[in-house]
């Protein structure tokens, strides 16, 4: 049995892990909820964001510039992807949409490998994130601590966009009833573009923020994609609160399990998902009617 301070530390760490998972999953879930497209390229876009961060910080050394330029770049990527590819698939079955994003994911990963090579790249921790903080019950990396705040702020911004703007209305209407959004007419297509781009930027920014923590390499996104899927299944499809709460739950499961035996952290995550599917198949925040 792990000690109480260790359990507390892991619970805290679960919060940090969870907020990041929530951010990754939220980009996936708004695209899914509004456009009905399950974006299999989400992991690749996460990775692309990290590379954007790597390129900018390697050139300028500025983390903030990295976020700004990186987000702008991801916005362009999102627009190009939507206009060039995803748009062709709105009228086609969900399965075709899944397949084309799956293929796009492969192309992005291998394209990055061709451009940057297979070696891992480093993004330095920004100067304000150096070091380690004494929190009383545990020592915790400064950057990860700050990240909790940054990600929480970003999640709040997303909340404002979704719940306080007209585009947010479209997104939420789409989650409630995709057909009703269709009735709204011509504006929908432009909203779809914005929503898709927003989701891509969310994926990219997650990658950028995570870049100083992990090694940046072409395959770094794949495990996040699967974890984001689990988060969405737990939280409920297309539900923004579901993505946030699901992300926090997933983070806690991984972390608390690690206090006992880290080898089982992933397995435990899937086990909880299976259990939830038995007890509440639509997910915590999902509505029964949605698929």
């Amino acid at each position: 049995m792990p000690s109480a301070p260790l359990l507390l530390s892991q619970a805290f760490n679960g919060l940090a892990l969870g907020t990041l998972l929530a951010l990754v999953a939220s980009g996936l879930t708004i695209i899914l909820g509004t456009l009905g497209v399950l974006n299999f390229a989400h992991g690749a876009l996460f990775m692309l964001g990290a590379y954007a961060m790597y390129v900018v910080t390697a050139q300028t050394g500025s983390f903030f510039l990295g976020i700004l330029v990186g987000a702008a770049f991801m916005l362009v990527v999102g627009v190009v992807l939507e206009r060039g590819l995803i748009r062709l698939f709105y009228g086609r079955p969900h399965e075709d949409q899944i397949l084309v994003t799956f293929g796009a994911g492969i192309v992005i990963v291998e394209g990055v490998r061709a451009l940057f090579g297979a070696n891992t790249q480093s993004v330095p921790t920004p100067s304000w994130g150096q070091g380690i903080v004494q929190l009383g019950f545990l020592f915790y990396p400064t950057y990860r601590l700050e990240l909790i705040g940054i990600v929480a702020a970003l999640l709040f911004v997303l909340y404002l966009i979704l719940y306080r703007t007209s585009i947010g209305l479209v997104v939420r209407a789409g989650i409630e009833d995709a057909r009703m959004v269709g009735i709204l007419g011509i504006n929908v297509r432009r909203s779809f573009l914005l929503v898709f781009a927003l989701g891509v930027v969310a994926a990219g920014v997650s990658g950028m923020l995570y870049a100083p923590i992990v090694s940046v390499e072409p395959d770094m996104g794949s495990s996040f994609l699967v974890e984001a899927f689990v988060v969405i299944v737990i939280g409920g499809l297309g539900s923004y609160p579901g993505a946030v709460v699901g992300g926090l739950i997933a983070g806690e499961i991984i972390s608390i399990t690690s206090a006992f035996n880290s080898a089982y952290s992933e397995v435990m995550l899937y086990a909880v998902m299976a259990l939830l599917l038995v007890l509440r198949p639509q997910g915590l925040f999902g509505s029964e009617g949605r698929v």
């Binding site: 899944i98 299944v233 599917l277 198949p281 698929v291």
Partner: peptide, 17 residues
């Protein structure tokens, strides 16, 4: 129990499990 996209995600997750 779930259809469409949800089904795909669940099968994927169990595959990974």
């Amino acid at each position: 129990r779930r259809i469409g996209i949800y089904f795909t995600m669940i099968t994927l997750a169990f595959g990974e499990m």
